[in-house]
Amino acid sequence: MSTTKTGINIDAVSRSYRKTVGTVFNRKTTTIDALRDVTFQIPSGALVGCIGPNGAGKSTLVKILCGILKPDSGTVNVNGREPFSQRQEHVRHIGVVFGQRTQLWWDLPVSDTFALLRALYQVPGHRFDVRQKLLIDRLGIGETLNQRVRELSLGQRMRCELAAALLHEPDVLFLDEPTIGLDAEAKLAVRELLRWLQQTGDVTTILTTHDLQDIEAVADRVLVFGNGSILLNGSLGDLRSAFGNTKVIRIATDSPASHPAAHLAKAIGNEQTFTFDPAQISAADLLAAFAAQAVIHDVEITDQSIDEVVARMYQHHRGESK
């Protein structure tokens, strides 16, 4: 049972698959490189967000890390285990949540599902009771326990999924779009749980998502995928500075103002929004220039939203790979 928690170590992993299209009379087989020579490390206990456009290789990577797909080449090590060759042993120590699919038993009450999972992962009774109680309290799902899974709302179900994935105290947790389609309250509950997991510090978590607010809220680090490669491996700050450290200034004035270094993004009535690069002109200088042209009633300076940064990054990458 005792595995050393060395985190996740991926070295030069590649994976391709063939895709056949066409009819009987006219078919073509193409090879798609889902992952190309990917290398990275994640220390034990870290929470890493994976982003990237659809088809960039995120889910292939997660499948490989879960042990349900074999890499063509390279080495994979998750807390001392090689996932594919030791799949059955490996999956005993991991938790997986797919936002789009349930791993709960559809027709059973939640509590029965939990009991099944206890037996399935052979968690000792008292240990399970403690863990279950902890998770139920944390996620606030005490009242849903007697309901059948199929009767739960999406938000309730996702909380139960998270509890189910954590009952057997996994050392790695894979979350695939855990907040997709959730209402604001449920989203916050999921994020709060992830932060709590991070504080307790013994679960390495990989979060793949398109919701960058999730990443901003909880991730230590981001892996950005594009075309099967890692485009960026670093903090959110790294991401911002690597792809245009653009800032946004919004001013409310009595008459329109402008500046050659500021790009007008939006103008509604007396309110104008500009983007600018702080390396070209500082916020103070820009504001002074605007103040010289008009009377400013209100001003707000923010970072460009992470969504826009990432969208630009994808665009940039597509341009490059062409």
């Binding site: 042990g67 349900i68 059955q88 999956v91 992962y121």
Partner: peptide, 8 residues
């Protein structure tokens, strides 16, 4: 895939 993720 989900079945493969269970330790059975």
């Amino acid at each position: 895939d989900r079945m493969l993720l269970r330790p059975v």
